[in-house]
Amino acid sequence: MNPDAAEVVIGTGEAVAFWVLGPVALAGALGMVFSRNAVHSALWLVTTMLSLGVFYVIQSAPFLGAAQIIVYTGAIMILFLFVLMLVGRDSSDSVVETLRGQRVAAAVLGVGFAALVGAGVARATEGLTVVGLGDAGGDGNVTAIAELLYTRYVLAFEATGALLIVAAVGALVYTQMERRPGSRRGQKELSRARFLTDDRPQTLPGPGVYARANSVAAPALLPDGRTSAETVATGVEAQEVEQMPRPTGREQLGSPDAALGSLDPTTSGTPGGRTGGEHR
């Protein structure tokens, strides 16, 4: 508590900044939730976080503002994007909701929660006095934080250090693929294994690609799923096209697995693919 600080009146500049950046933050949050593409979501979230960072700086927390921008938008979100690339920007997040009533319930509960908490906060903080931090006792914000962090909160600080170490080690343990020593296969062995199995030798197509062959013997697909004879080179025997099953109806759309498709023709069309048998 800064006893000298009189009540601070919030200035017009801050109000303008709030009314500009507040909607931006809201838009970022909504955009993150509603964009189908995960990369887009990440970018929307970056927008929100940057806005919040500016808010921190405005609210006399410049250190945290910087940390927000550097740590969150700089490090954490980049980590997200890395993982997105590793996982594959897959198209599995279809727009169809599989849990009945989930969206409606989420919307109702969300609105209710926002209304309750918003109203509660607004009511509780009506006429909230702003003591303000100013320059935090004259030594600046970073010094003030550091003083507290290394005195009163030093134990918690040490604990967070331990937490970070444990988190790093845990992440390593999780992502580590165990291989028996000497079982590592070189390029030669990998190629041989790839060509000697029944599976196709070429790489898997990217997400969203229905055709699984780019051979000259494979005919092109028409939009309705039939093959086009004109696309096959002359003198070549047309090859049976292996293709991803297409969503043909509501039932297939109902299952994310069905949308993802299966190479097994017997199960590809199974409605409600999330049956017990599939996760054996």
Binding site: I10, E14, A15, F18, G22, A25, L26, A29, F55, Q59, A114, V117, G118, V121, A122, T125, E126, L128, V130
Partner: peptide, 12 residues
């Protein structure tokens, strides 16, 4: 403009 605005924004 009061601090309540920030809090409501945070809630939303």
């Amino acid at each position: 403009m009061t601090l309540t605005y920030y809090l409501v924004l945070a809630a939303i």
